[in-house]
Nucleic acid binder design. Structure first.
Lengths: 147, 147
DNA sequence: TTTCTTGCAAACGATTTGCACTTTG
DNA sequence: CAAAGTGCAAATCGTTTGCAAGAAA
């Protein structure tokens, strides 16, 4: 069984468990949105998800997408990010996030750093319970710095 | 001389130098906005700055505030952040930023960590030139976790 | 006097909201 | 069937933009 399918079914189970625990309904829209989010996997925004679903003939209103993405964030399945622009971006939750953000062209490069994440999430924050972290390094990318 | 005044004049000089270098004009609005930004110091948003200026009888249009804050970011005097909400927040640039963000009530607590910042800014990022960093830890604050 | 800035109001665009209709439990 | 969820369109609201009037160089 391919790893992505394994992950994907795990996440679906995670959603089912979450919906059950909160007495919320298991609608097809919610699972369709989760599947597409997993498929897009890297940072995606609401419109990309909307278009991807539309392309394969599956129609869901934007309002539902907004609702569901918020739900998936609460379930800890997705993380929501706001970088330079005012456009929310989502990604499947993984512990480690280190983003190199060019403040000129807005390009975002992602770097994995499990060690940093571990150290950020396992400190004592005096009552605050950490769930996930996101570190952003702002600067100039090679292209923008070189001109 | 109090430390804040010292810092404040340094930042004003920094702005003057920046405007000179870029052949931009030294308008009273730009200095008024910088002064108020320094006075607010912690995270503030456009409206807080606007109201603070308005309260003391100094009128500047929002458009000018937006323009100037962007300028101050380019000058490296302020940093712009987007946390949970879609509202840009600014703060006087300091190397270290570690934010504890409650994903329920949106409260932001700031923690200083010069060591973390140093380690983030002095790595080799393969062509990318880091300028400043911001780390965000998302989770639940003591109040929201305890209910 | 030339060009940059400002202010105002209109435009924009991502997100939210209200409400009638549909579906899940 | 009752309550929750969806779709649609209108409303919201932070931010951007166009342009005429004002100020810096």
């Amino acid at each position: 069984m391919p790893e992505t399918e394994y992950e994907s079914s795990t996440l679906r189970d995670q959603l089912t468990e979450f919906l059950h625990r909160r007495h919320l309904r298991k609608t097809p829209e919610r699972y369709a949105i989760l599947s597409k989010a997993i498929e897009l996997s890297a940072h995606f925004d609401v419109d990309q998800l909307y278009n991807a679903l539309e392309t394969e003939g599956y129609h869901v209103s934007r309002a539902t997408i907004y609702n569901t993405l918020e739900l998936l964030c609460e379930a800890g399945i997705l993380n929501r990010h706001l970088f330079a622009t005012n456009l929310a971006r989502y990604e499947v939750a993984r512990g480690s996030h280190l983003h190199l953000i060019c403040r000129k062209c807005g390009k975002i490069k992602e770097i994995d750093d499990p060690l940093l994440t571990q150290s950020l999430l396992h400190r004592d924050y005096d009552g605050f319970s950490p769930e996930y972290s996101s570190s952003s390094i702002y600067g100039l990318c090679a292209d923008c710095a070189g001109q």
